[in-house]
């Protein structure tokens, strides 16, 4: 069941078209990854969904009900848009208390700080926070109203590997508790680890959309690198499978996941000196097509 549906969304700043007839739907309880290179329109989609910018055209349905404006979504969503933003002269707790008062939220601030791993720095002024701490506090802000859906714009920006892991685990645990998560990133590897649905955006248009099941089942592009030139038999074998020779030592080929192991095994039998196997999902391929 769709939690929200966006139809024919277009956005212009002056004469510049930022989003062009974008339509997508977000099922309830899933993690949706919005992917695309810098400037593709990811942040613009998120800003429209948050009511920060006004689109030229577009319709929003929440639970199949047409809404008057995109601002209506604020009632059921928590947001992290661009870089985290706080009043630097106030402590983490006071920043959250201000928002709590605005939103009449019943969330316990101390519990929330524990949840995002900031329980020891609640009374500290935000201006002394590191990037990772600010990112966690921003997530706490977004969670304050116990939203049905989280909309996060580049939440992993500036995080170290541990910070990334913590945040990823937090998002997965929120999702397991029923929160729908819509997260944008220009780094494919980040999202591939945990998103259920991938939307690839390029030049303000949806370029590609796939869900995790389809992605797993779909053919992968495998790039084999050999140390020495291939035997004629090995070459013929790869040609038969549709191999594309970049040079004498490198060949790419599209295979189903079930075919990969047997192909490698056959190449070894044909005495090929295989030194590297690189796999690209269809999503990665599409992503590289538009970013390179």
């Amino acid at each position: 069941m769709s939690f929200l549906q966006v139809e024919n969304l277009s956005l212009q700043y002056g004469n510049q078209t930022i989003l062009n007839d974008v339509s997508f739907s977000i099922p309830k309880g899933k993690i949706i990854g919005l992917l695309g290179p810098n400037g593709a329109g990811k942040s613009s989609i998120i800003k429209v969904l948050s009511g920060l910018v006004f689109p030229k055209t577009g319709k929003l349905y929440i639970n199949n009900t047409l809404q008057n404006s995109f601002s209506e979504l604020r009632n059921s969503c928590g947001y992290l848009i661009d870089s985290p933003a706080f009043y630097p002269y106030l402590s983490a707790k006071k920043n959250l208390r201000l928002l709590k008062k605005i939103t009449k939220s019943s969330t316990n601030i101390d519990d929330l700080l524990i949840r995002v791993g900031l329980e020891n720095v609640g009374p500290k002024k935000v201006k002394h926070f590191s990037t990772g701490m600010k990112q966690r506090l921003a997530i706490a802000q977004a969670l304050l109203r116990k939203p049905e859906m989280l909309i996060l714009d580049e939440p992993f920006r500036g995080l170290d590997p541990n910070g990334f892991l913590d945040l990823k685990n937090l998002l997965i645990s929120l999702n397991e508790n029923g929160t729908t998560i819509f997260v944008s990133s220009h780094l494919l590897d980040e999202l591939e680890q945990f998103a259920d649905i991938f939307i690839l955006i390029h030049n303000g248009k949806i370029a590609f959309q796939i869900n995790k099941e389809e992605l797993i089942k779909s053919r992968k592009k495998i790039i084999f690198t050999f140390e020495e030139k291939l035997s004629i038999e090995a070459k013929e074998y790869l040609f038969k499978l549709g191999g594309n020779f970049e040079n004498e030592l490198k060949v790419d080929i599209h295979l189903c996941p079930s075919e990969i192991a047997s192909t490698i095994s056959e190449l070894v039998t044909l005495e090929s000196t295989l030194i590297n196997v690189e796999t690209h999902t269809i999503l990665q391929e599409k992503y590289f097509e538009i970013t390179i």
Partner: peptide, 13 residues
Amino acid sequence: EYGTIRVLLTQPI
């Protein structure tokens, strides 16, 4: 300047 306008305007007010 602080970017808090984004935080305020994404609340249900």
